[in-house]
């Protein structure tokens, strides 16, 4: 299942849609910031620079053509995410450590 429904109905004359991810500063992850149209990958990177980094928002850009993004289905949300709910033992707060024990 691709990300958005419209990708198949885009006309042949329309520049493809790209998703843009920006690293706002060294040490941080790239984060999705939006999308844009571009004829090719190189143009997509340049357009992303011109559209999404006009106010020093980034130091690195990723683009990916929207049709290549595959997304989980919201109908699967219960099956996907709820099973993690009762695995409290995965969290450090589940365990009690005596007060006298340090550095744990």
């Amino acid at each position: 299942m691709t990300l958005f429904k419209n990708l198949d109905c885009m006309s042949q004359k329309e520049w493809p849609l790209w998703e843009v991810f920006i690293r706002s500063k060294q040490g941080l992850d790239h984060k999705h910031v939006g999308s844009l149209h571009a004829a090719d990958a190189e143009m997509a990177v340049q357009n992303a620079r011109d559209v999404y980094t006009r106010r020093l928002e980034g130091v690195s850009i990723w683009v990916v053509e929207s049709k290549h993004v595959h997304a989980s289905n919201p109908d699967d949300a219960a099956a996907f995410y709820e099973p993690a709910n009762d695995k409290v033992y995965r969290h450090p707060t589940f365990y009690t450590v005596p007060d006298s024990i340090k550095h744990m």
Partner: peptide
Amino acid sequence: GHGLYLYSAAETLGASRD
């Protein structure tokens, strides 16, 4: 830029910019 952000938002609903 704002026009572009908004067209992008509408595109997530299945409308094409063209």
